[in-house]
Structures are given as structure tokens and as C-alpha cells.
Design a protein around this nucleic acid. Structure first.
Lengths: 221, 221
DNA sequence: GAATAAAATATCGTATCCAATATCACATTA
DNA sequence: TAATGTGATATTGGATACGATATTTTATTC
């Protein structure tokens, strides 16, 4: 049998209440639907999903481990607020991880991946909706790392990205415009097409660093 | 008052039951006290700490997010077992993160840090107890990254290390001997003393890669 | 008005219960 | 005998109700 039975049950069965809640709250935080520092009331969430508080508390504990919420003892969970130095450090880690990921990916990159990346890039250039823009941005970035075939690294990159996406969206909502981003994306893509892994990594590193600087500048105003 | 009262309660007050349980189970998994794939029964843990199931379940959800346990639906939590390719990927990420961390740290490294690192290194060379050896190994490594002043990066490195420490300990228990490790530690230390950040990063990268190869070899037998 | 006391609110945790499901031993059948 | 079906059991996932504790807000007193 080609399938390992031990791996299937957790994948095949319906998600638990706590899993569903984790997913929704994570999405709400990442997308910026919650305000920074806003309290997430257990009772409110429980009523919203029509469940008891137990799965809600489990969900919040999980999100705490992901760095998306913080617990204040006997006061509850708040949407994690990230200081400027922390944002800078998270972007720094992004630059490190993603430049290494693309370096591993480029030598194995398929024409199909390049085609998909170009499509995301084109769609990204035309999009005006913030949520969709953010989605396409991630699609573009992550598909450049996929051929590296490093699921652990890719999951880590996703988790690190989740922590700062709300700030990127806030910036974009306030300031609009993705001009320099698109140009840099095309440069990265060109380096990938040429098979120049080091060049792609270098541009990507600069791209992420620049995004961070721009974000911090806009956040300070 | 120089302190913000809102930030204190979570730091100053006694940990919650769930926090205590997280800490103990994490330690038990990391240290290898649990067998890989072993079920962690909610009732057993609850009785052990003399609490109800709720804080236990919250603790297990947290550890799931950290990658230390896996849930099998309606069967419970098991100690996460990591496949060989996953181990290789985790070590690869370690090499990436830690070599970058030491690169950031070396230019700012204080004489005191170098002194502490040497002490850990010396103690490491004489130690025979596995748990203590592992502790000193981490102390040595992490103190080399501290002067970088990047708490987010350091926490990430710790979390990644936690996932594989149980395998390192198993290897050490079975095979003993830390000869090559100690020599490489001294080489890293020498590069740090000289202020050669790139050299330190390079040796560290090789050191971690070699540790991984050696671990996989021993695990396969 | 400032300091203290009391009430309201929400979390953290307990105890008990129930339903769904996975496992295992056993019985049945081909 | 081997494969399949069938309970019995155990454990999880979750509900409910309650108590304890800590924080915030309101009210009261000086």
C-alpha cells in the first residue's frame, strides 16, 4: 500500500473545534481585522462559534506559541503588539531564511514554477485590493522557495511572515502603492530565470530589508 | 514610577498551572525522558500534577505549536517523531540561523562573553554526564549569540534546537564521546577572539552540518 | 479631591458529565 | 486458517456549572 495509515487520520478527518477557531483567529489577526492590543474575550469567541470556552482557550494557547497573541494573567489574551526593534528583527530573520531558501530553490527550479511566479507577479501588479495583494505577494514569494523541497524551512518562513503581515497590510492601507515591490519582484524573477541563485538571494535580501525600512518609516508617521 | 504596571503581572506573578505543565513536559521531551511516539495521557499528567484536564490540554496544544507533540484525533497527543529528512532540514535551518547570529555577534562581543564561552568549553570537555553535557553545549552556543542583541533570533534558535536535542542526547548516550565537538568549539572561539566574524560563521556552519551527519549515521545503525 | 472600600467583570481552574471514536479481544464466517 | 464482523473498553473532545482569584470600575468616606 502506498499510503502510510498512521499519517492519514489526522489529515482525513474533520478538524476539531479548537482547530477551526485557531484558523479563524489567526486569519483575523494576520489580516489586521483585530486591532493591535485588543483583548480577545473567551466568551465572545465561544458565542461566535457556538462552542464552550474550552476549545477557545486551547486555540488561544496555540496562538500564543505562534507569537500572535499574548496572555496577561487573569486579564486574558490580547493581539500581540510588536515593537519597532522586534519588527526589525523579524524582518532580519525573514531576509536570512528566505534568501537561503531561494538559494536552495533556484538550481532545482522548474519552468512551471517560473511560469506561476510570473503569473503571480503580473496579477500582483494589477491588484488594488489589500487582502488580495497580500495573498499574491505571499504566493509569489513562497512559490520561489517551493522547489527547494524544504517543508520545515518553508513552514518556518510562513510562521515568521504571519507575525508581521498585519503591519504590512496596515501600511499598505494607509499609503497604498506597490511600485518598488513589483520592480524588485521582476528582478528576482529574472535572476531565477538565469539560474543565478546568489544574485536572486542578494536581491531578495535587499528587497526584504527595504520593505522593513519602508514599513518602519510609515509606522512612525 | 519607572515601570509600567500593565507589563508586570505576566512576569512577576506565579506561573499558571498550564505554564508549569508546559515547562515540565517540554523538558521531559527535550531531554528524552519520553520515548518517541509515546502517548501522553491527559489523565495521567493531570493526576501527576494534581490538576484537572483543562490546563493539561492547553499545555499540550502549546507544545503542539512548538512541534514537540502531535495530536492524533480522538487518540491524543504523542511525542513528535521526526523523520531523517526532517532532522536534516532542522539542522540545515540551525546552521543558517546560528551562523548568521554569530556573524552579528562577533563584532560586538565583549571580553566577558569570551571568558564565559571558554569556561563553558572547558567544563564541556571534562563533563561525562549526558544531561549536563547537553546543557553546557547549549550554554556555549547561545552565549556566542547573545552579544548580537537579537532576542527574536535567539528564541527561534532555541526553539529549533529544542526539537532535535532529544536525538542528540540519544546519540550521545549510545555512542559517547564529544571529541570532535570540543575541538571545533575551540576553533570557533579562536575565530571570535580574533574578531573574524566570517570565519567563525563558516566553522560554526560546518560544525552544525557535521553534527547532523554524525547523528544521522548513528541513528541509522 | 484623594484615599479607601465595595461591586462588577473576566480569567483560571475544578468537577462531573456526555458523545464520538479508536483499539482490542473475541466470535463468526468463508 | 485467514479474513471479517462485533461488542466492550478506554480515551479524547467538548459541555456545563461552579468556585477562586485578580483586575477594573464605581461608590463611599474623610
Amino acid at each position: 500500500m502506498p499510503l502510510n495509515p498512521a499519517d492519514l487520520p489526522s489529515l482525513g478527518s474533520a478538524p476539531t473545534a479548537s482547530e477551526i477557531i485557531v484558523k479563524h483567529i489567526r486569519e483575523a489577526i494576520v489580516s489586521g481585522a483585530f486591532d493591535e492590543g485588543e483583548f480577545i474575550r473567551q466568551d465572545d469567541v465561544a458565542k461566535l462559534f457556538d462552542v464552550s470556552k474550552i476549545p477557545v482557550r486551547e486555540a488561544l494557547k496555540r496562538l500564543e506559541a505562534e507569537g500572535l497573541v499574548e496572555f496577561h494573567r487573569n486579564r486574558g489574551a490580547v493581539v500581540a503588539s510588536i515593537s519597532e526593534p522586534e519588527i526589525a528583527q523579524i524582518f532580519e530573520v525573514r531576509a536570512i531564511l528566505e534568501s537561503n531558501a531561494i538559494k536552495l530553490s533556484v538550481p532545482k527550479m522548474t519552468p512551471n514554477t517560473l511560469k506561476r511566479a510570473k503569473e503571480y507577479c503580473d496579477a500582483f501588479a494589477q491588484e488594488t485590493n489589500v487582502a488580495r495583494w497580500s495573498e499574491l505577494n505571499w504566493q509569489f514569494h513562497s512559490c520561489l522557495y517551493e522547489d527547494a523541497d524544504r517543508p520545515f524551512l518553508l513552514n518556518l518562513i510562513r510562521s515568521v511572515n504571519d507575525r508581521i503581515e498585519r503591519y504590512l497590510r496596515i501600511q499598505l492601507t494607509l499609503c497604498g502603492g506597490t511600485g518598488p515591490d513589483e520592480r524588485e519582484h521582476r528582478q528576482i524573477l529574472a535572476a531565477c530565470k538565469k539560474g543565478d541563485a546568489d544574485k536572486a538571494a542578494e536581491i531578495l535580501h535587499q528587497h526584504i530589508t527595504k520593505t522593513c525600512e519602508s514599513l518602519l518609516m510609515n509606522l512612525r508617521k
